[in-house]
């Protein structure tokens, strides 16, 4: 079994289940949208959004929804203990991690495709002024958050307190992603957009992603052995 084949098989399996039930996609999207609306209550004054609130709201919605999606995805693997069945196959274990990671990233990217226009529309944020840079920040931030999240959600499958532990562990560790994401996006929302600053944060996100994906691939196998 090659690495890529395994990752693809796991991704395809998750995709098949999700196409059938749609549960995680719909609940995640609904939750993300609710988040944005709740923040609107806090950040809209007299019909006008607070200046610069868009970037923060977008990222908080993505990260909260991400936590929910991670929990649900691995709840599915816990039921019937299929995560153990996956670990028992001769496929490279790190490839199983990559498959799950790609699934989470795809889900969050789908959520972002809905959230970005929504935030742009509701908060009058010029999110589409620099589409490529915005896509880079969102994509890299999502990968960084999901790389740590997938590993932690996977290892917490065997813990009784996983629901509360996941956010407790995940958010402090991904703080650099949150900061880089929010500040990078804010830089793009200024008029005129501050491209050098955005690029600086993109650089931070790239290095964060490289370090944490490597670490996760390295520690997945020993962390998953009980």
């Amino acid at each position: 079994m090659s690495f890529a084949t395994t990752a693809f098989l796991v991704l395809k399996k998750d995709f098949t289940i999700e196409v059938k039930s749609g549960e995680i996609l719909y609940t995640t999207l609904f939750f993300a949208v609710s988040c944005v609306l709740i923040f609107a209550i806090a950040f809209v004054r007299e019909g006008q959004p607070v200046e610069g609130a868009g970037a923060g709201i977008l990222w908080i919605a993505v990260l909260f929804a991400g936590n929910l999606a991670l929990g649900r995805t691995f709840e599915r693997e816990r039921y019937g203990e299929t995560v153990r069945a996956l670990l028992l196959t001769p496929a490279p274990r790190a490839a199983i991690y990559v498959g799950k990671l790609l699934g989470i990233v795809a889900l969050l990217v789908a959520a972002e495709c809905l959230l970005v226009p929504m935030v742009a529309f509701l908060f009058d944020a010029p999110l589409f002024a620099r589409p490529l840079l915005l896509a880079a920040i969102l994509g890299l931030g999502t990968v960084g958050f999901a790389s740590v999240g997938t590993l932690f959600a996977a290892m917490l499958v065997r813990s009784r307190t996983r629901d509360v532990m996941l956010p407790i562990l995940l958010y402090p560790i991904t703080v650099p992603v949150i900061i880089a994401g929010v500040l990078g996006t804010s830089a793009l929302l200024q008029s005129p957009a501050d491209e050098p600053v955005a690029l600086l944060w993109i650089w931070l996100l790239v290095s964060f992603d490289v370090v944490f994906v490597t670490l996760a691939l390295w520690t997945f196998e020993p962390l998953m052995t009980e």
């Binding site: 532990m165 560790i173 520690t219 962390l223 009980e226």
Partner: peptide, 14 residues
């Protein structure tokens, strides 16, 4: 302990 070890590694790395 093992879960904590993961947290320790990632915490130090971040």
């Amino acid at each position: 302990e093992k879960l904590a070890a993961g947290m320790g590694i990632f915490g130090a790395a971040t």
